[in-house]
Design a protein around this nucleic acid. Structure first.
Length: 623
DNA sequence: GCGGATCAC
DNA sequence: TATGGTGATCCGC
């Protein structure tokens, strides 16, 4: 074969993958079954061709193709080697995972059907029979009529219009969706008071206890839940019922919309289910990983097994572990409120018309900093690291970060420390024009006043043999109260908005805050020092009684939050902050026990992400 | 630890 | 005319 046709073939092949990529990330969403994807792909391709976005996508696609070439080359090398040891390691891992299999829990994933569109339809019934979408330049979602034309979430508005010229575009009414989501959560809380919001329209529930208490089967319970939600909110939801969250999530997509699917909680049924399941159906496998897996011959989760000896070397240990769990159909069986997840960053970004003027760019940076300050104040965090993100007019994305001398959150500081990064980028890309700018703080430090047990990480542990002590009703009430506290106000009463103060006073406050922050970190570290600080049930009969070791004086303290806070206040006033920090540092150096890591939020590759307990975010959620 | 990349929603 | 915002994780260096 000559070189020319080969190159041509390659170009065609590359365009095929590009076209596939251009279809967007939500290809697996429902409503696309009877759509001629080739036709849709052609329209999208032609609508996009030549644009800067297209060119960038093309470049990315070429890079991925090269990356896949490298993967294949590596695989061919591995094939020549003796991988018996790798196969044995994989088999040992599988055996180990198998031992951890827990089929005792009934986990449910629920997902509102085309949620934003459904809410809009309630207000405007005439929309029911016409294709329409919600969102601005990019579709946030669209109804099922629109999906028949190939429209999808994440698609550019003008492309959607090409696919469906009659498409009606609606602006987002975020408050409306939030209110509706709240209605839904008020119902599902009765099925699991500790349900977990995955987003505004998705939630995980563990209904094991509900089924036991009401002597009802899981499928029947979920049918009842869906019926109840529909009757009371007029929203239809789809649900998946399975032994763990990963499977439940997959199952909720099986009979969408307005349907449910239950996967038996039996090993054989689960293995059989995974065997024929395309990898892309698993949460965490996106367009890229799907292509990479496909390239080596893995199309379904069942295919994973025969390639097990290659996976770690080709994709890394994390991906290996993830894939093994996919093959076995394993996932977490725990469900917990989103507020209990720990936030790791706060950021803001925005897109705008091409901008290259350095003065304008600095104005934009200042505005971005001011936006971020609002979010930092709202969430009560400072950041030890500040990250600047820019997207050039070519759609290329770059990030740069700094560690300011102190934790930051005030716009002035955010700006001051990010300007040099912007200047450096301007040097790096002379005449650069941006279409997006963003700022993000990471390595967060809490600014919450240290007067609650929650601050120290103490949570009332429900006595396991006393489920009534944490009855659904009381928890519901508490969680409803939480949701009303939507701005985190009331936790910072004695420290009003910084902006109200004159600069000098502000500085003073800041220094004080800095000290508090240092204290909080020290105590935080110490808290994680050992399990011994967690609440211990008192020996004896009174199981309800609990006590805590004060993290400052070390003495055991009473159980009520009020008493505990009073003690902490007393302790703090007796001992200066400096003393505490000193003492804590000493105790740390005495005790060489490694600080236990916080519970990880997700599993490998960001699977099973939770939503941080940020009010802004929480507003988006059921939880 | 940094920067790029991927992923979910 | 023209393709989002927020947050998380993983990998290679």
């Amino acid at each position: 074969m000559t070189a020319a046709p080969n190159r041509e073939e390659k170009t065609i092949a590359e365009h095929e993958t590009l076209k596939y990529s251009l279809l967007g990330p939500s290809l697996t969403k429902s409503g696309q079954d009877n759509v001629d994807q080739n036709k849709v792909s052609e329209i999208i391709y032609n609508a996009s061709k030549g644009s800067k976005y297209f060119n960038n996508e093309e470049a990315r696609d070429k890079n991925l193709t090269q990356k896949i070439e490298r993967i294949l080359t590596k695989k061919r090398q591995l094939e020549k080697l003796d991988l018996a040891s790798d196969r044995r390691k994989a088999d040992e891992y599988i055996a180990e995972l198998e031992l951890s299999r827990d089929l005792s829990q009934v986990v449910v994933h629920i997902d509102c059907d085309a949620f934003y569109a459904a809410v809009e339809e309630l207000d405007r019934p005439e929309l029911k029979d016409v294709p329409f979408a919600v969102g601005g330049g990019v579709l946030t979602t669209c109804n099922y009529h629109a999906r028949k034309f190939g429209c999808r979430s994440g698609m550019a508005g003008f492309v959607a219009k090409k696919l469906c010229p009659e498409l009606i575009m609606l602006k987002l009414n975020f408050d409306k969706y939030t209110a509706k989501a709240q209605e839904v959560r008020e119902i599902i809380v009765d099925y699991d008071p500790r349900f977990e919001s995955a987003s505004i329209d998705e939630a995980y529930l563990n209904i094991t206890e509900y089924c036991r208490r009401n002597d009802i089967g899981p499928e029947e319970a979920v049918e009842q839940l869906r019926r109840e939600v529909h009757e009371k909110t007029k929203i239809t939801i789809s649900a998946g019922i399975a032994a763990n969250a990963k499977l439940a999530k997959i199952c909720s997509n099986m009979n969408k919309p307005n349907g449910q699917f239950s996967l038996p909680r039996e090993r054989n049924a689960i293995i059989a289910f995974m065997r024929d399941l395309p990898t892309r159906k698993v949460n965490g496998v996106g367009r890229v990983f799907e292509r990479e897996l496909d390239a080596i011959g893995v199309k379904t989760c069942g295919d994973i097994y025969q390639y097990r000896q290659y996976l770690a070397k080709l994709f890394g240990d994390k991906a290996f572990a993830f894939l093994m769990q996919c093959y076995l159909g394993l996932g977490r069986t725990t469900v917990q409120p989103a507020e209990e997840y720990e936030r790791k960053s706060v950021g803001t970004e925005s897109t705008f018309g091409e901008m290259g003027n350095p003065v304008e760019l600095r104005d934009k940076l200042r505005a971005t900093a001011e936006e971020l300050e609002k979010d930092m104040v709202r969430t009560q965090f400072k950041g030890r690291t500040l990250c600047l993100k820019v997207k050039l007019h070519t759609f290329e994305v770059f990030t740069r970060q700094v560690i300011p001398p102190k934790a930051v959150y005030i716009a002035e500081d955010l700006y001051k420390y990010s300007v040099p990064m912007l200047s450096k980028l301007e040097q790096e890309f002379p005449g650069m024009k941006l279409r997006l700018m963003g700022l993000r703080c990471t390595h967060l430090v809490s600014m919450k006043k240290p007067d609650t047990m929650a601050f120290f990480g103490f949570k009332r542990k429900s006595t396991s043999d006393q489920p009534e002590s944490e009855s659904p009703s009381s928890d519901t009430a508490k969680r409803k109260a939480d949701s009303l506290d939507n701005d985190g106000e009331g936790q910072w009463e004695s420290w009003p908005d910084e902006l109200l103060f004159e600069d000098a006073e502000r500085q003073e406050r800041e220094d004080e805050m800095q000290e508090l922050e240092t204290l909080s970190q020290e105590i935080d570290k110490r808290r994680h020092h050992g399990k011994e600080i967690v609440p211990n049930p008192k020996k004896g009969e009174e199981v309800e009684e609990e006590w805590w070791d004060c993290p400052i004086c070390g003495r055991p303290q009473a159980t009520s939050e009020r008493e505990f806070n009073e003690h902490i206040d007393l302790c703090l006033s007796r001992q200066t902050i400096r003393d505490v920090v000193q003492e804590t540092a000493e105790s740390r150096s005495r005790d060489q026990t490694p600080v236990p890591k916080r519970a990880k939020m997700g599993t490998e590759k960001g699977r099973e992400k939770g939503v941080p307990g940020d009010p802004k975010q929480r507003r988006l959620c059921f939880g």
